[in-house]
Design a protein around this nucleic acid. Structure first.
Length: 904
RNA sequence: GGGCGGUUAGCUCAGCUGGUUAGAGCGCCGAGCUUACACCUCGGAGGUCACAGGUUCGAAUCCUGUACCGCCCACCA
């Protein structure tokens, strides 16, 4: 006998082990089945998984299990990310906490990298076990890591390919420099926070200029204004003048440029091209000199800063203002000025724009993909002959745009498509080099003026490899396909990238992948870059569908952040308390795609209760079997005996249909909630209660099997466990059990009768409780239509039992409003009231005069023309409502309807 | 400044292409140990679907505008 309550702890690990041992997770590359593939977004190997990861695992596992049960060759590739900056920071911090002052200096490159690798290995172990705890049915035989040797080879090949294709270049550009972490970061890794800072206006020659950053102003020798600004008409472009400035006299040049907003401040500004993106652009346009003012350590430089050289900018700022004030150059100070300060997403240090020699991916250069033509450009109808040639030469930006625009990739929910296009429009070249040590090293070697790019170091002495590493997203952008390349092939350096792809069976079978599921906050970081890199390099889109989930928030709607342990819900705390199934349900149900959701204890407890309800329902079914002497494992067929049986059976078919459809359309929350409601309200509270009188054990077993099958993707552990109790002895494990098909409804009209009867029963029950009729007293039912009488009579004994009455009198008589009947019907089942019925109804009520009767016929006539039953019924009903005393208005409405019909 | 969402019961949220009396979970109130389940059962209260217009026979749903909240992008010296 099963225990009274479900105990996840004693079951989950055993079941997971059983699945894994059985090989159910392992995809067969030789199978002829249709593939269904998900690349797991590789968690950062920086410690352990948090609740967001748990959400990813839950959703993806639902997709994968559903596909597997539907008979597809399901592959879910797991792995981890080396997470360059993030991991290096974590380890450096650990070393510092351990007493080391400057780990980089003390250990040197090789030793530090070894330390980080060691740490990564540990956290990979933790992560693997956590993924298992969630019940994720991923293919461990194909586990990969973004920084493994095979992937390094691929990264290098891609770099070389793009370098040779002119898409990767090295140049002096303005970059986001993080003085705290001592590296550049990409535009997407910069955040802006509002800050109140004094806003100073200074006298600069004949002009007044304003700034919140006087410390950058030492070298300013260009004043810029709009060419059309009348106030400064007398100054000519290129004119120079001398003026007193921070450290003595400077010779300034006047520049006219249209980017200056005449309405802002005085309409005049000085520029600092080395430390400001906009100023840099102006300087480039006019060929102006650029000079560095602030060092990479965040301190002012000599000789330009004069007496302030070597000072930190925060310290120098007030002193500089003071000095200008003493010279009489400070015009005014606005203390309430609010501006946006750029900070690094990692580490939160202030970002200092700097000019630096870096590696970039060119997103605007038009290239011809050397592989098969880009999928999206298979632009079928629209002027193929003309465009075909043109569209093969596209920039990376255009490629990214095209594949989504043409539907090669579908984004769910679709509103994120707009966000995606918007991002592309604003996209600038991607800075891919980082001045850190942990990561794929830039595969470029230098010897004097010589430069070599490739997967292996060049032969001969004196070559030195670039000391920078690549942005971590560079390697993760190759994830969907680099993980499908046979690692053995990557050791053979005679093979090209194209040949490796061609010779990898996994790649041939499983790429492009089916769905990419991730939270929307890495749409740009990762999803967009995968599209960019993969489509260019392989000529295939990385995935056909992007499913974006929302973020998991706290009860108050705040972000869960590690720095605030109070708010964080740790999956490892939840699982022992409530079970992985309950956690999975609470992370996937009750939320639309792309919408954030809040997680809190009561919510998880609620789903734990549901799991327990399912458990007890199963216990009850088993008990019934035992009482009657039926062995559930031998049940193969069932009979639909009673009316209730029929209702259950029909409802079950509908659930199968609804759930399947929802899952196929990626509406998993709806699918889950449909099941939740069905199991609890219909199966348990209604059918099981009824069946206490006259149980039909075979049908009970069959229904339970179906329910378990449908629920399995959502809560795999408890369903697999219960499956062991009720499955046919020849059935396999639930994880590989085929998905059920819904039977066709042969006699749809039966529904109406069926539901009517059940409606009657429910109505009787309600009547009894409303009027305090004692249990067992006689009840008389008055019916609407004569034809239902024989039906009700034939089911009299059922009705009596179900309605808990001793005797029943069935008669026809005065009209009972159909409305009341409908309201008493069971949830999830509709009733079709025909137009004819409606007219009858109104006649019975005496609402139809002769004229009005004509009116109804008129409507019915329109109805047949339109062949839209629904529309006419509703319209007719409205007319009936309105016409009571307002015949004229009703006629007008009808005329409008008719006009609309004609226009159709 | 540009863009994208949200505003539905005390709380957290569903409501797909407009269609019977707007739903669920939790909470609240009342009753109840009936052959599974108190992690339960039965019953109940509670909503002018942010506001104002419009389209329609019919609007929570479509359109326009307003207010508030949130997110993303750009960034102004």
């Amino acid at each position: 006998m099963l225990p009274k309550a479900y105990e996840p702890g004693s079951t989950e690990d055993r079941i997971y082990h059983m699945w894994e041992e059985s090989g159910a997770f392992t995809a067969n590359v030789k199978s002829s089945r249709e593939p269904f593939v998900i690349s797991m977004p590789p968690p950062n190997a920086t410690g352990q998984l948090h609740i967001g990861h748990a959400a990813r695992m839950s959703v993806e596992d639902i997709f994968i299990r559903f596909a597997r049960m539907q008979g597809k060759e399901a592959l879910w590739v797991p792995g981890t990310d080396h997470a360059a900056i993030a991991t290096e920071n974590v380890v450096i911090k650990k070393l510092k906490d351990g007493g080391m002052k400057d780990p980089r200096k003390e250990l040197g490159r090789d030793k530090l990298v070894a330390k980080i690798a060691e740490f990564v290995e540990q956290s990979q172990g933790t992560i693997r076990s956590q993924i298992r705890k969630m019940g994720s049915s991923c293919d461990w035989s194909r586990e990969r890591y973004t920084f493994e040797p095979a992937l390094n080879r691929i990264v290098n090949e891609v770099f070389k390919k793009m370098y040779d294709g002119g898409l990767i270049y090295r140049g002096h550009r303005i970059v986001n420099w993080d003085p705290k972490l001592q590296t550049t970061v990409s535009d997407d890794e910069v955040e802006y926070i509002e800050e109140k800072a004094p806003f100073f206006t200074f006298q600069y020659g004949p002009f007044e200029i304003s700034t919140s950053r006087p410390e950058t102003k030492f070298g300013d020798k260009y004043v810029v204004m709009h060419p059309d600004d009348k106030r400064y008409k007398k100054y000519k472009d290129g004119e120079t003048f001398e003026c007193e400035w921070i450290n003595g006299k400077v010779r300034a040049t006047i520049i006219k440029d249209e980017v200056v907003d005449p309405a802002f401040g005085t309409g005049v500004m000085t520029i600092t091209p080395w430390h400001d993106t906009a100023d840099f652009d102006i300087a480039e346009r006019h060929g102006l000199e650029k000079e560095q003012v602030i060092g990479f350590d965040g301190k002012l430089l000599a000789p330009i800063a004069g007496e302030f050289a070597g000072m930190k900018i925060e310290d120098a700022r007030p002193l500089i203002v003071e000095k200008l004030k003493s010279k009489g150059l400070l015009v005014k100070t606005d203390e309430n000025y609010v501006h946006n300060k750029a900070v690094s997403q990692r580490g939160k240090g202030t970002i200092e724009p700097q000019i630096k020699l870096q590696w970039f991916v060119d997103v605007n250069k038009e290239v011809i993909s050397t592989f098969a033509p880009v999928g999206a450009t298979a632009d079928k109808q629209s002027s193929r002959s003309k465009k075909a040639k043109k569209t093969t030469a596209m920039s990376l930006k255009q490629i990214m745009h095209a594949v989504v625009h043409h539907g090669d990739i579908t984004i769910i929910p679709d509103r994120f498509g707009k966000t995606y296009f918007h991002w592309i429009d604003n996209l600038r070249d991607w800075c891919i080099s980082r001045q850190i040590w942990w990561g794929h090293r830039v595969p470029v070697w230098y010897r004097g003026e010589e430069i070599h790019t490739g997967a292996v170091a060049p032969e001969g002495a004196g070559w030195e490899q670039d000391s920078d590493t690549l942005d971590t997203w560079f390697s993760s952008s190759l994830w969907t396909w680099s993980t499908l390349i046979d690692p053995k092939l990557t050791k053979d350096f005679s093979l090209s990238l194209e040949e490796m792809l061609k010779q990898s069976p996994d790649y041939q079978k499983f790429h492009p992948t089916s769905v990419l599921e991730t939270a929307y906050d890495i749409l740009f970081f990762w999803v967009a870059r995968m599209i960019l890199m993969t489509t260019y390099v392989t000529g295939q889109v990385p995935f056909k569908t992007v499913y974006l989930s929302g973020l998991i928030r706290t009860r108050d709607g705040k972000k869960m952040s590690k720095s605030d342990p109070e708010t964080v819900i740790d999956p490892l705390d939840v699982i022992p308390k409530y079970g992985a199934d309950a956690l999975r349900l609470s992370l996937t149900l009750g939320q639309g795609a792309g919408a954030d959701s809040r997680l809190y204890d009561e919510k998880i407890a609620g789903y734990r209760n549901f799991v327990n309800k399912l458990w007890n329902a199963s216990r009850f079914v088993l008990m019934q079997c035992e009482t009657i002497g039926v062995n559930p494992h031998t049940v193969t067929t069932y009979e639909v005996k009673s009316l209730a049986d029929k209702a259950l059976h029909t409802a079950l078919q509908r659930v199968i249909r609804d759930v399947t459809k929802c899952l196929e359309e990626y509406r998993l929350s709806e699918a889950g909630e449909r099941l939740y409601g069905f199991v609890w309200d219909y199966f348990c509270d209604w059918y099981l209660e009824l069946s206490k009188g006259e149980p039909n054990p075979e049908l009970l077993v069959h229904s339970l099997r179906t329910i378990l099958t449908l629920l399995h993707p959502f809560c795999p552990f408890v369903t697999e466990k219960l499956w062991e109790e009720v499955k046919q002895s020849t059935d396999p494990m639930l994880i590989v059990q085929p998905w059920p098909f819904a039977e066709d409804e042969k006699f749809p009209e039966e529904h109406v009768y069926l539901q009517t009867i059940i409606g009657v029963i429910t109505a009787i029950r309600k009547l009894r409780s409303d009027h305090d009729v004692e249990h067992g007293k006689d009840v008389s039912v008055t019916l609407v239509t004569k034809e239902w009488v024989p039906l009700l009579e034939s089911q009299e004994s059922h009705i009596r039992r179900m309605a808990k009455v001793e005797s029943l009198m069935i008669t026809t008589g005065k009209f009972k409003p159909a409305k009341d009947m409908v309201s008493a019907f069971l949830p999830g089942i509709e009733v079709h009231l025909s137009l004819a019925g409606l007219i009858d109804l109104e006649k019975e009520r005496g609402n139809l005069t002769k004229e009005k009767g004509e009116l109804q016929k008129y409507i019915a006539g329109i109805g047949s023309k339109l062949q839209n039953k629904n529309f006419v019924e509703r319209a007719a009903q409205n007319v009936v409502e309105l016409e009571r005393g307002k015949l004229k208005e009703a006629e007008e409405k009808l005329q409008k309807i008719e006009q609309r019909l004609k226009s159709l």
